[in-house]
């Protein structure tokens, strides 16, 4: 096979998956090869402490479609995914977990959706094989919340099996734990999203890297995503909502202080000072955010404010 551009790139972050990784490779080949013989499989070894990398290295010596990326150390799932996305060469990118809970047999259906014209095809797990109270219930709550806050109601944000149009996903900034919010973070790019039901299997190898505590994290992450979405759309308006409330409260307290009797006057004056200080703080925060946006824009390599003449 020549080194022409692959039809699809499949990205798999792996951390301590020595039990599952060879089987995953076999299943990907068996299920993807019939439809897309010219695929590439990028496995990112996120600093595994077990034999994951050695197994992958052996496999990569036999199949040139397999690309193994070894991280210098353990960076986490989002950087692993970001590395895979950066290195992918296909026009359509598919992500899935290495633990075999996702079924590679669903990849062609997701890719077909993107080929239909959607920018993102997001899998949702049918008959999810996880514990109800520790995994499924928090997931249901989190998905509803994410849908409400971001305005992109996806049934299963936690399902890693997704397919993306390359030019869309490569523009999405990925850092920290943002891999959970890729569809939401794609909103500023004006994406079209399709949902596809996918199979889900019980975990056979290794241990889950998630737990109940993630609800707390997801909640605050969501707040951050909301802010970033607002920031992307209207950078100077990040704190405008809070500012409006605070300013109205200050005005109300000032009027109340001026019109009330002597006893109430002290209370309302104090409240006016407190809410006034909050108003000043929010204005300051908004200005700082605006300055940061300006700095980021001028630093960005693809937003030059000049052009070079021939």
């Amino acid at each position: 096979m020549g080194h022409r551009r692959p039809d699809i790139s499949i990205i798999v972050p792996a951390y301590n998956e020595e039990g599952a990784i060879a089987l995953l490779y076999e299943q990907v080949v068996a299920n993807v090869e019939p439809d897309f013989p010219n695929f590439e499989l990028i496995v990112v070894d996120d600093g595994s402490k077990d034999r994951t990398f050695e197994i992958l290295e052996e496999l990569a010596q036999k199949d040139e479609r397999l690309v193994v990326v070894k991280f210098l150390r353990n960076f986490g799932q989002t950087p692993s995914m970001a590395a895979g996305i950066d290195l992918a060469r296909g026009p359509i990118l598919v992500t899935l977990d290495a633990d075999l809970q996702n079924d590679p047999a669903d990849i062609p259906a997701l890719v077909a959706k993107v080929k239909e014209g959607y920018d993102l095809a997001v899998g949702y797990r049918i008959r999810r094989q996880d514990k109800f109270f520790t995994r499924k219930l928090p997931s249901i709550i989190a998905n509803r919340l994410i849908g409400k806050v971001t305005g992109l109601p996806i049934r299963d944000n936690g399902c890693s099996l997704k397919a993306y149009r390359a030019e869309v996903i490569k523009r999405v900034p990925l850092y920290s734990d943002m891999h959970r919010f890729i569809p939401s973070m794609s909103i500023p790019s004006g994406v079209s999203v399709a949902e596809v039901g996918v199979r889900h299997h019980a975990r056979q190898f290794g241990e889950s890297k998630y737990g109940l505590f993630r609800i707390y994290r997801v909640f605050f992450d969501l707040l951050a995503v909301r802010l970033i979405l607002t920031f992307s759309a209207r950078p100077l308006a990040c704190f405008s909502g809070l500012f409006a409330i605070s300013f109205a409260a200050t005005a109300g307290f000032v009027i109340a202080a001026l019109t009330s009797n002597a006893d109430s006057n002290v209370v309302f004056s104090t409240l006016a000072v407190l809410s006034g200080s909050l108003t000043v703080f929010l204005v300051s925060a908004g200005v700082i955010v605006g300055l940061m946006q300006d700095g980021a824009r001028t630093r960005a390599p693809d937003t030059r404010q000049y052009s070079v003449a021939d």
């Binding site: 199949d63 397999l66 690309v67 960076f75 950087p79 692993s80 990925l174 920290s176 630093r299």
Partner: peptide, 14 residues
């Protein structure tokens, strides 16, 4: 958003 959050040790591929 403009910087890499990872460091690659090596890439293995034919």
């Amino acid at each position: 958003r403009r910087s890499k959050s990872y460091e690659i040790d090596r890439i293995v591929s034919l």
